[in-house]
Amino acid sequence: MIEVGGLTVRYGGVTSLDGMDLTFEKGTCGLIGPNGAGKTTFFNVLSGFVKPAAGTVRAFGDDLLALPHFKRARWGVRRTFQTEQAISDLSVYDNVAMIHSPLRGSARRADVLEAIEFTGLPDPYATVSSLTAGQRRLVEVARTLAGKPRLILLDEPAAGLPDEETAHLSSVIRKIPEHAGALTILVDHDMSLVSAVCETTAVLDFGKLIASGPTAAVLRDETVMRAYLGTAEVET
């Protein structure tokens, strides 16, 4: 469980997150909002790239903000980036094995291969530069699954993917909490992906939480529609 209290992030005069209060219970949670709403900033706070001006984040009882960024991965924070960051010079295996892991030796190798197999990537020894965009995204997802993750942050994993690859990605993401036992937070603009994958969803707008709850209810919420479309008269 992640409890976020009064989280505020400022970049100069811009307030990117404005006193965000939110609790992620378990399973896969969606985090949506228009561009600039503060979704990626929130991920950056959780993974330690951005220091908040105020607020607390308690993750499974631990104070996450007290840890320096490279120790967050050791704690179990895993993330992907908006722009895909699979390392092209390395093989799929080496990309996944890069992640911090408490396992050693053959147990670690088995764990890495299992993560790769889970995402359905065909050849763990293929060089990443030879893969398709969708497969490279899967490499990133596989990297989040190895080494006993506790909190997985997926930042627009389906951005720019063709439909069938999005469908495969969606089936992979849906199985993550059960497979890896980690709380997963998904940021995406693809509403069909979010509603297919996430049980609960929170909506940010201008750094403020405007709605949260079961995904279906949130997506029907009037405030949410107004935030996205700029109007309340959407039912017509």
Partner: peptide
Amino acid sequence: RAWAAIKQSEPAALAAGLNT
């Protein structure tokens, strides 16, 4: 592996828990 990661993307290396 760590050097390849740092060269291409320092954020990804940090997020993977590598002490860059």
